[in-house]
Design a protein around this nucleic acid. Structure first.
Lengths: 144, 144
DNA sequence: ATTTGTGCAAATCGTTTGCATCTGA
DNA sequence: TCAGATGCAAACGATTTGCACAAAT
């Protein structure tokens, strides 16, 4: 049995730290904790404020500025994907693979669109432009 | 030749006023002028601040609150379509027909996507939800 | 030791709101 | 007349920034 001091970092955090290091990010205490909250539950869509609330609920208090900083760094590093749909609020998606979304109007909720949608007959981009991403948003509404 | 007083409204404004009335909107001086600026040049994508600047450049000074009010009323009336792509800024599209967009990253510019893109193999919306719109955004970047 | 991140509070940006005043039907 | 619009300024929510302090390499 290995030595377990009171300040030793649990294995899950150690793994998070390693992953951050692998992505070229300095594994600070805050980033490690935020990363754990973010990636613990599989794929999800979360806003900065929500992440902060979740972290706080888990006993990790970080400033909002740090949350934004971390989210942007994670995104740069390819660990997250930013989804800009709603004007006013930015969502970060832990699913960085190529996929689309349902967007529930009036609730601002994002849902991954499963299966592979086919998008054909796409026109050429304007002169001198190259396509960087295709984003399909299927707006939905709770039936009346 | 009909009487032409100094304060008579030019024909183009009269037509705008008629169109607003037809849409159930009270054709106030500000709305008529904003409508003229908006719809004079065919299809376009414009933000509130841009519209205000254009109006101002044309000698029409309106408060920003009124610009927002007008844009929203026009949208409700089906004269405009709101395009929410960039988080932070709302664009209004004078092309209300069913179509998609190129979004030029780093410039925040919207360009209509011509031709009819085919979107197939769309999954069912979640239980109790109905689709209200399909929005495809093709992100592009100026080639390096 | 040096670089990089953090926290806080203030600043910014786009948008909305409250309210007194004005205006079109 | 009078519901509905306007203008202004203040309120707002999300995000960013400046800067002194703290922590990671």
């Amino acid at each position: 049995m290995e030595h377990a001091g009171a300040i030793e970092r649990p294995a899950i955090l150690e793994r998070m730290a390693a992953e951050l290091r692998r992505s070229g990010l300095r594994p600070t205490r805050q980033r490690v904790e935020l990363g754990r909250v973010l990636f613990a539950k599989g794929c999800r869509h979360i806003s900065a404020e929500e992440l902060r609330a979740e972290a706080a609920a888990a006993g990790v208090q970080v400033s909002l500025a740090t949350v934004y900083n971390a989210l942007h760094k994670f995104t740069e590093a390819g660990l997250l994907r930013e989804v800009a749909i709603d004007s006013g609020r930015a969502y970060f998606d832990t699913n960085v693979s190529d996929h689309h979304h349902f967007f529930v109007e009036d609730e601002g909720q994002l849902i991954d669109l499963l299966g592979d949608v086919e998008i054909d007959n796409l026109p050429e981009p304007p002169e001198g432009m190259e396509i960087t991403a295709l984003e399909l948003v299927v707006r939905v509404r709770r039936q009346t």
